[in-house]
Design a protein around this nucleic acid. Structure first.
Lengths: 191, 191
DNA sequence: GTTAGCATGTAAGGAGTTACATGATTTT
DNA sequence: AAAATCATGTAACTCCTTACATGCTAAC
């Protein structure tokens, strides 16, 4: 999840860890809380070791050079060609079969880098999972309703409502994708 | 989370692990997928070591006795007095400050075992967190909208909608609690 | 008699978090 | 010069999952 998100953001341009965390918090604000540094920095190491990102040590001409006096200054990372391949590979994976898994949201957030066929596949996969959960909840509200207390039932109703809403949302998105008219995708800084 | 759920279910009556998992899947169906055995059984051990649950070895008079020929038969657990204390203690904790944390739902599912003051505190805590997230999303949709692509914006809108909906739901529940007329709480098998 | 479902468990590992520690830079 | 915030990092730990292994019991 973090791996996909980091590669995706570095796809838009080079960045250092701290900045990455901030952008991630904005981009994935609808999905999850900001990631912790204790998770981010080891991930950057791992991605670098795998060859998917590199330190941008080269003094970018024209840009302000980092002060050479600093011992432990910013480390700016950029994505490599292998990293872009890896990113596409991760984007293609639909992720685990659980409803509450946040990976759908992360995939969705990077849909502007995904081809339409993959977008459709992921949207339909998500719809199937949400529909399954919806059926499970309907079942519980029917079959086991007597054995559950009022609060639990209220929780199930609210969950069912959320599922129905999400299915409708997904239907709209799928119809829109199929119409061949995807939303006006304007990636911030295309490369 | 698992600890609270297991203690809560055993509060309704003795049960063995396999059955526990099934009931958990129904009760917490709106919150999360079924827990795995690799998580459940070690937890039962831990709870037993802590003295919060015990094996119900006593041949319950009248009930069908487990076949004595089986080597590794069912292990039926029941909650102890200390376990009930622990359960109340866990119920009182509002849980972490993150929006996506499932612990609110688990707390809610056991509201029929919680006193009204605690219910109100937890509902209001949840409302505050959801409102914060909502504000964060509104902010992102306003402030950073230009820097985000159409899919990310769509995700934020959907997230914002879900937040607004949940806040309304919580408002209703809070009003209902305050009216002193909680839902007809009929715990399945009160002890 | 064999498939399906019931029932319990272990070992390894994944994907993060919290708490801590350090130092540079900017603002007040 | 103090405070805030920028910036990087490590160690320990949490809480869960997957994959595996075992054996019993009921149904077809």
């Amino acid at each position: 999840m973090l791996e996909l998100a980091v590669l995706g953001l570095l796809h838009e341009g080079p960045m250092h860890g701290y900045e990455l965390r901030k952008q991630l918090a904005t981009k994935l604000g609808a999905i999850r809380a900001a990631i912790s540094y204790g998770s981010l920095y080891p991930t950057l190491r791992r991605l670098q070791a795998a060859g998917w990102i590199t330190e941008e040590s080269g003094a970018k001409p024209g840009a302000e050079a980092p002060p050479l006096t600093s011992k432990r200054g910013r480390v700016v990372y950029k994505i490599t060609a292998e990293g872009k391949e890896r990113f596409q590979e991760l984007l293609g994976n639909a992720g685990p079969e659980t409803y509450e898994d946040p990976s759908f949201g992360v995939h969705f957030a990077f849909f502007s880098r995904t081809d339409q066929a993959t977008r459709l596949r992921i949207l339909e996969g998500r719809r199937r999972r949400v529909e399954e959960r919806r059926e499970g909840l309907r079942d519980a509200l029917g079959r086991a309703a007597e054995r559950l207390d009022a609060y639990t039932l209220e929780l199930q109703r609210h969950g069912l409502d959320a599922c129905e809403r999400e299915v409708r949302w997904l239907e709209e998105l799928i119809a829109h994708e199929r119409s061949g008219k995807p939303p006006d995708v304007t990636p911030p800084t295309s490369r």
